[in-house]
């Protein structure tokens, strides 16, 4: 089985972002970049499927030349090779889905698995848009994936618990946090990943226009909360909740 895994390069999610003073974007100076955490679950799931029943895991990342680093990190986790679609343009999810659809047509995989959302834009859009554009079924927020007989049975994380859905392959699946436990890359794998094939192409090479349907006009700070107070005892806490905040 061939599995295509789109991966995104994101600023370290554990560092609070600083906005540029003119609101035009985020100040990334001194910030390190990582593989989007949800995409690591997608890579792990794909690698486990291939380890069990054969095939290959192919990564794709879209962005500047820096994304090669992101791809190498993913290749060290067990993927065989990768595509780097180089562009300096900021693409929205609709444009990303167009690019992924072009790579999908080059590769004809049996399955696409990616993270349920990227932790920078928090959009949660591109995978479902890709499925729609390719007219493939989808199973988002996967908790458990079982494959067999040209079908996938997927338990999905939903409000209030789980549901179970059966889809035909090929299909698009997005990974949620309990799907698996992503492995750490060992040094020999990191060294090996440096020699794995990364095919660099431009949007023109793929023949996609990648037209964004949305545009971010500006970013602003959310309203800050008023400063709170430290109380000295449980008694004082309950008193304040009853008499000042009036919430008990």
């Amino acid at each position: 089985m061939k599995i295509l895994v789109p991966v995104r390069r994101v600023p370290n999610p554990d560092i609070k972002v600083r906005l540029k003073s003119d609101g035009s974007g985020v100040d990334t100076e001194g910030v390190n970049f990582l593989v989007n955490p949800f995409d690591e679950y997608a890579i792990e799931e794909a690698v486990q499927i291939v380890e069990k029943s054969g095939g290959e895991v192919v990564l794709v990342s879209i962005g500047t030349a820096d994304c090669e680093e992101t791809l190498r990190a993913g290749l060290a986790l067990g993927a065989l090779r990768g595509w780097l679609v180089e562009t300096s343009e900021v693409l929205d999810s609709a444009a990303i889905a167009d690019v992924l659809a072009a790579v999908y047509k080059e590769e004809s995989p049996d399955l696409v698995i990616t993270g349920k959302q990227s932790v920078d834009t928090d959009n949660n859009q591109a995978a479902q848009m890709l499925a729609a554009k390719l007219d493939l079924p989808q199973a988002c927020f996967a908790f458990k994936v079982e494959l067999g007989d040209g079908k996938a049975t997927v338990e999905r994380e939903i409000d209030g618990g789980l549901d179970v859905k059966e889809i035909t392959l090929p299909a698009v699946i997005t990974a949620d946090l309990r799907l698996n436990q992503p492995r750490y890359a060992a040094l020999p794998q990191i060294m090996k990943a440096k020699r794995k094939e990364v095919k660099k192409v431009s949007l023109g090479d793929l023949g996609v226009e990648a037209k964004s349907a949305t545009k971010i006009l500006g970013l602003s700070q959310p309203p800050a909360r008023a400063a709170g107070q430290i109380v000295g005892s449980v008694e004082e806490l309950v008193d304040k909740l009853v008499n000042d905040a009036k919430v008990l």
Partner: peptide, 13 residues
């Protein structure tokens, strides 16, 4: 966006 640390104004085309 960014875990609620930025509010984006978005235009749809």
């Amino acid at each position: 966006m960014f875990a609620g640390n930025a509010i984006a104004t978005v235009e749809v085309n």
